[in-house]
């Protein structure tokens, strides 16, 4: 049984509903919440690892509830042309997906470690971090 990593985007209308409870209870899925946040506009983002036989049914349920389900691989990218290699993002990245290589002081981005908290998009002074949908 393989685990699948997905990103869930909740709108302000469904962010306060017990949707994950139903995902576990009704579809017998094993979940691991890697990241969950609600922004000031009451929209939620959640990064989940999901495994279980009824995975596809669970995803359909989420979509019926108005939750957008995105594959994790297609999300945050670094615009290399725009990035100035300053490093301002590195101290805000919770998983060190963005880090400074020493002694060159160049900024590296390891997409594998990214959990899509999107903090770097807010921090980057030159908007070099982008969401690819």
């Amino acid at each position: 049984m393989t685990e699948k990593k997905v990103v869930l985007k909740f709108s302000a209308q469904n962010a306060d509903k017990p949707i994950i409870y139903h995902l576990v209870k009704d579809y017998d899925l094993i979940i691991n919440i890697l990241k969950a946040s609600i922004n000031p506009h009451k929209e939620g983002t959640m990064v989940l690892e999901i495994s279980g036989d009824r995975y596809e049914e669970g995803i359909s349920f989420l979509e019926q509830q108005g939750v957008s389900v995105l594959p994790i691989e297609t999300e945050v990218v670094r615009n290399i042309e725009r990035c100035t290699n300053c490093g301002a993002c590195t101290v805000h990245c919770p998983t060190e997906a963005l880090y400074i290589k020493r002694p060159s002081m160049e900024v590296e981005f390891d997409g594998e470690k990214c959990i899509l908290c999107l903090m770097c998009l807010k921090i980057c002074p030159v908007r070099a971090m982008e969401v690819k949908v």
């Binding site: 100035t84 290699n85 300053c86 490093g87 993002c89 590195t90 101290v91 805000h92 002081m105 002074p125």
Partner: peptide, 11 residues
């Protein structure tokens, strides 16, 4: 305390 530069040393 972790540090972060705002000016780019590589540039």
């Amino acid at each position: 305390v972790p540090t972060a530069p705002l000016s780019s040393y590589p540039k």
